[in-house]
């Protein structure tokens, strides 16, 4: 059986288990045993129902979908740029996207329509991905591309710092910090609903690019030579990863590194095939964020640690480790 299928099935089971664990864990009004009984027996205690279905489930699903979207976007960008370190966070796409969301909130544009925040997040993600590609794609060295991304990321950070600097009151400041730190706490079904169309469209774009990504292992000219439509693949990945990242940032703020770590761990199980990498990376990245979010929920801190902080605490060292060993992989 193909490595893609077995790996995906294994990871889907892991994802289901992680979601179940996340549902049962936590400091709620009922213990895991009672919750499990409520889930399986259908005992409709309204309080348990509220905890499970209205509070925990949307939060857990947001964590899973945000992780999956970032894993998918990371895997697709890595295939397009032939660089294992490409990731929406590292390349500045998440930062620009958060800037879009922050502008929507800061200037009160979000009050105009519920679609403004995800819309601006996605528009900024799209603009930066396209800019990045235009600036770095001609580079023989993929290092340059990552450096351009780091610069764009810093610039988006500087603009957000400017808005924080000029924030008129502590409430706007705390709003801004929420986007920067990244969290899925208190998400409702409504929040998932607003991002869902963009996640689905991004997923479709990226999956359509899978054969093109496989061809791109030969480089752009090589891929064109074997009959791949390189401009189409490029467009699908840029639009798809921008939709996935923008919708994720709109739902949860900046959550970094999961898009690098998950594809890196999956690659050996799919024979390093950039097309077969996509779905398993999404499943693993989603599972990782569900587990990380469960950890921040149950850890006994006086103030809950933000998910984005936890992801960076684990992900940044992993990034360094991958970068140190990546020599000769992408170039």
């Amino acid at each position: 059986m193909s490595g893609r299928i077995t790996t995906s099935i294994g990871l889907a089971i892991a994802a289901a288990l992680s979601i179940l664990i996340a549902l049962l864990a936590g400091n709620g009004p009922a213990g895991p045993g009672e919750l499990l009984a409520a889930l399986t027996g259908g005992q409709a205690d309204p309080l348990m129902h509220t905890v499970l279905v209205e509070i925990r489930l949307p939060r857990i699903l947001t964590a899973f979908v945000v992780g999956a979207a970032l894993g998918l976007a990371g895997a697709a960008l890595q295939g397009l740029l032939r660089n294992p370190l490409a990731d929406p966070g590292v390349l500045g796409v998440s930062g620009a996207s958060a800037l879009g969301a922050v502008i929507a909130v800061y200037f009160n544009l979000a009050a105009l329509s519920v679609w403004v925040t995800p819309g601006l997040s996605i528009a900024m993600a799209l603009a930066v991905t396209a800019l990045l590609y235009a600036l770095g794609a001609s580079a023989v060295s993929t290092t340059r591309l990552v450096l351009v991304g780091v610069g764009l990321s810093s610039f988006a950070g500087a603009l957000m710092a400017l808005l924080m600097n000029l924030a008129p009151n502590p409430f706007s400041l705390s709003d801004l910090i929420n986007w920067l730190l990244g969290s899925v706490a208190n998400r409702s079904w409504l929040d998932i609903g607003f991002s869902a169309p963009f996640w689905i469209a991004g997923l479709v774009c990226v999956l359509l690019a899978a054969p093109g990504l496989r061809a791109l292992t030969l480089g752009e000219e090589g891929a064109s030579g074997i009959g791949a439509d390189v401009p189409r693949t490029r467009l699908l990945v840029i639009v798809g990863s921008a939709l996935l990242t923008g919708a994720s940032v709109a739902a949860a703020g900046i959550i970094g590194f999961v898009g690098i770590v998950a594809p890196h761990l999956v690659r050996p199980f799919v024979r390093h095939d950039p097309g077969d990498l996509l779905i398993p990376s999404a499943l693993l990245a989603g599972t990782m964020l569900v587990l990380a979010d469960t950890a921040v929920r149950v850890l006994p801190f006086a103030i809950e640690m933000k998910l984005g902080v936890a992801a960076a605490l684990i992900g940044a060292p992993a990034f360094v480790w991958i970068a140190a060993r990546a020599r000769g992989m992408g170039e």
């Binding site: 292992t217 480089g219 024979r271 390093h272 950039p274 992989m329």
Partner: peptide
């Protein structure tokens, strides 16, 4: 320039 970016078989 015979590139193959990943550790594909």
């Amino acid at each position: 320039d015979r590139m193959s970016a990943w550790a594909m078989r």
